[in-house]
Write a protein that binds this DNA or RNA. Sequence first.
DNA 1: CCCATGACTTGAA
DNA 2: TTTCAAGCCATGG
Length: 130
Amino acid sequence: MVGRREENQVPENPNMSKDKTSFFQDVLDVARLIPVGRVTSYGAIATYLGAARSARMVGWAMNSSFTSVPPVPAHRVVNRNGDLSGRLQFETPTKMQELLEAEGVVIKNDWVVDFAKVFWNPTNELNIVD
DNA sequence: CCCATGACTTGAA
DNA sequence: TTTCAAGCCATGG
């Protein structure tokens, strides 16, 4: 092989037929489905998309969420511990917490207190239509 | 092209 | 319980 995937660049897909780039899009899509006052984890989204070991890409996709339209509620995505690991990526380190609290989610020390309660699992909530 | 890093997760010790 | 190592794949130097 000459290179890894130099040609995997997809400038713009007029026809969303390519599933290759859908991962990023799907991540953003699922994130938009998170109900208000609920949160989910990177791994949950990754697992839902069939890439349980690619949780990191989910986080990377969220980074792209800031410039994506419609806007993605990235503040509703935390790590498996319920920690606001991505708070530093927001406008201000406290923005993420403020957004969550505004939705009724109790945050304490950069941690979702009722994580087990407000946790929203796409694989469980979103039924896969057969 | 090679190397390092990252909004993570899992499994083994 | 905590800690360490490996896997994931895109992006940047």
